[in-house]
Design a protein around this nucleic acid. Structure first.
Lengths: 245, 245
DNA sequence: GCGCTAATTTGATCTGGATCAATGAAGCGA
DNA sequence: TCGCTTCATTGATCCAGATCAAATTAGCGC
């Protein structure tokens, strides 16, 4: 399906006049917009401005009215929830091409923040909804995305509910490896795009535990650091074994 | 939105001939099928048999080909994942009216089992998909369901990743109270429809911890048991406070 | 390169919930 | 009604991961 969408999108991209706002969009082929043909896209995009956030800035607070939806065109976002005493759980990360707004609720259920400098393509929600209502392909794509996110969230439930610290770290590294591979990085070279604190709050662990577990994997020669945020999986089999207990 | 759907469905229900297989469906108004009018529904339902499972029986195993989708018409299902050493995480429960098959993947990601005797309305997936492709209202409903399930799963991520045992139990009781209220039970009377073991595997706790926490709440006069599976919330404010830390 | 600040790692200790082990209470078929 | 089995509760102990407390190491502006 991905390759089909890609082919269609490439075609559309080629047809766009250079002044079309989506003509140079880096995620044109993988975002929801990929479901639209040239003419529809032009109509869709009209009036949808691009917005930018620095690392750490907040795109939306939990409880804010969800007046817009977005496609992330560059950078990295995190969805987090804070408990009254400061505990934080990160429910997920959004990568370029991901869609922000897979909900029908009126308010944001999570705080959305930029992990690194990020740019988003914004659409006012009412406009988006009425436009989508006339575009079955877009609606289907939204459903597909929601189903995919649901599957990912349920995987994470297993991790948070039943896996040990070692298993969580191993699972996370494999997830990154999978994502990296999809983007064409060398198979076992991984970039951890977030801080240890974010990693901990995503995996339900404290920062010290994350650090210790990574050190353990290094000592066991299962991974090898090539930088603070980059590492190599030396023993893929072992990691896969560790991830499932 | 719910009340609108209800009104539409009631109308459709009244119009159905008594022999229509959906004419007496107890969840006609709340299930995905509610998105369809009488004629579409007749076409949709044709050939979709009803299947029944006893308590404990498995509807589908993790890894099985997902050849059908279902609407749960009566009973209660659980979605669970098993780790190699027997640890289990329950990712969610399905109540009557819920849809089983919110995924585009070829295989079931979770094992689906009946918690109590249950009946489901089955549709072969290829047939369902091609039918849905011509029914925008149905597709929209599927998206709405997926978005709703996604929100619920993310709430559960917060619970599993960052809440204490007490907070998990309190949150769970409130969830049941909310569901009960939606179904018209007295506001603070709750029925826990699952065993302590299921409760534990849903909340990421051991069965002993579940039992102890319930005993603590009872000792603190926050809840009051009216049966092994039924209880009353004596102090709603306190419980809400406990649920969030 | 220097000095500052923030991020990470490592060490020591503590504790919430797991585990191990009975005991008590329901349901249920004969 | 009696066993028998399953489920739930309660008690004693243990341990994985949290917490508290320094060291190290990176960045980064000047």
């Amino acid at each position: 399906m991905a390759s089909l969408a890609l082919a269609v999108a490439d075609q559309a991209l080629a047809d766009l006049p250079p002044t079309h706002p989506c003509g140079t969009c880096p995620v044109r082929d993988i975002a929801v917009c990929g479901a639209l043909d040239d003419a529809s896209l032009r109509c869709f995009k009209e009036g949808g401005p691009t917005v930018a956030y620095d690392a750490g800035e907040t795109v939306a607070f939990e409880g804010d009215a969800a007046t817009s939806v977005y496609t992330l065109t560059a950078g990295l976002l995190r969805l987090s929830r804070f408990l009254p005493d400061g505990r934080r759980q990160i429910a997920g990360f959004l990568f370029p091409g991901d869609f922000l707004g897979l909900t029908l609720e009126k308010e944001h259920a999570f705080t959305v923040q930029a992990v690194v400098p990020s740019t988003l393509c914004r659409f006012p929600r009412p406009r988006f909804d009425s436009f989508a209502a006339g575009q079955p392909a877009l609606e289907r794509r939204l459903y597909a995305l929601a189903a995919q996110e649901l599957a990912a969230a349920r995987e994470q439930l297993v991790l948070l509910g039943r896996k040990t610290a070692t298993e969580r770290i191993a699972s996370f590294l494999l997830m990154l490896a999978r994502r990296g591979r999809a983007e064409g990085t060398a198979a076992d070279d991984i970039r951890i795009p977030v801080s240890r604190a974010d990693m901990g709050d995503y995996l339900g662990l404290r920062i010290e535990t994350v650090s210790r577990e990574l050190s353990n994997l290094k000592a066991a020669r299962v991974i090898q650091f090539t930088g603070r945020q980059t590492l190599r999986l030396c023993d893929r089999d072992r990691i896969e074994q560790l991830a499932e207990g």
